[in-house]
Amino acid sequence: MREITKKELEQLVQRRPELQVCSEALAQATQLLAEVYRRGGKLLCCGNGGSAADAAHIVGELMKSFCLPRPVTADEKSALLASSAKNGAMLAENLHRALPAVSLAGEISLSTAFANDAIPQLTFAQQVFGLGNAGDALLAISTSGNSENCVYAAETAKAKGMQVIALTGAKGSALSAIADVTVKAPETETYRIQECHLPLYHALCLALEAEFFAKDAE
């Protein structure tokens, strides 16, 4: 992990000292995802309610510039210019490099169809089964750590050869028993756990952006 990446994680503790207890697991999650992205993999995210909104939020930070510029590479610029004499320059100027991520909570048509035709608790698992590949990662967000649809998704991810990160509350859980890394917010009340989750995943996204898009990135 690059020094600039470590600094992003250290700054979280400076801002939110109560999250010091999460720092080691958060660093492990960052390292795991950095390796996934270096291999050309992607991240799938899932959660319910507020955690579904968090999953979408994470995807938004990873798929475009967050705090650092992410200009396209020279090769990408050449390909875009070659693709369209009219729009290639505009595309090359305005598109951002991405860290591929997908929220499984956003596929309403698929989720409702599968819930109606099969088993509702397996809607995330079905998407993991269809989209996930060996070398990808799943981030399952659950304040209890026991949400059935997230647990089924995590089990399916492991069967696909994926790695699993869980973002939960302080208590042990079914997800933490499955996950390669569990980041446990130091709270037990749902809304307080969610208040911790946002700075935790912001730090994760900032660290990943620094890892790949800081000016001295190799």
Rank of each mutant, 00 (worst) to 15 (best):
D180V: 05
A210K: 00
L104V: 12
H202Q: 04
A52Y: 15
A55M: 06
A210T: 01
A82G: 05
K77F: 00
G132F: 09
A185G: 14
N149K: 04
D54R: 03
P69Q: 13
V59T: 05
V102N: 00
V164G: 08
A89I: 01
E24G: 06
C22G: 02
G172D: 09
G130V: 05
Y201F: 15
M90L: 15
E195R: 15
H197I: 15
A174D: 08
P199F: 07
L167N: 01
G49D: 08
N87F: 13
N116M: 09
A177M: 09
L139M: 15
G47V: 11
E211K: 07
P199M: 05
T190K: 13
C196F: 09
F213A: 02
Q126Y: 03
S103A: 07
G50Y: 03
N146E: 14
A56K: 12
E155Y: 04
Q194F: 14
G50N: 12
K215S: 01
M90R: 01
A105T: 05
I178A: 04
L198F: 07
L122M: 02
L19G: 06
N133W: 04
A89Q: 08
T182C: 15
K6H: 10
D54M: 04
R2C: 08
P17E: 07
E107V: 07
A203D: 01
Q28G: 11
R192E: 09
E61W: 00
S51G: 10
K215L: 00
T190W: 12
T156W: 09
F124H: 05
A98K: 06
L62T: 05
R2G: 07
S103I: 04
A34M: 13
S109Y: 05
Q28N: 15
F114D: 08
G40Q: 10
G145P: 14
Q14V: 06
E211C: 11
A53C: 07
A203Y: 00
E35M: 11
S103Y: 04
N87M: 07
V102Q: 00
T123G: 11
E3W: 00
V183A: 03
E218F: 01
E18Y: 08
M63A: 06
L131R: 06
L81N: 07
F129V: 02
D216N: 12
E10L: 15
S109D: 14
Y191Q: 12
Y201A: 06
K7D: 11
A137D: 03
C46I: 10
E10H: 15
A29E: 02
L9V: 03
D75K: 02
G88K: 10
A210F: 00
T156K: 13
L131F: 14
G40A: 10
L167P: 03
D54G: 09
M1R: 13
V183M: 05
L12C: 02
Q163F: 10
Q28A: 15
C22Y: 02
L80S: 02
L167I: 04
S111V: 03
H57M: 13
R70V: 00
Q121E: 08
L139Q: 03
S144C: 12
C22R: 01
R97E: 00
S176L: 13
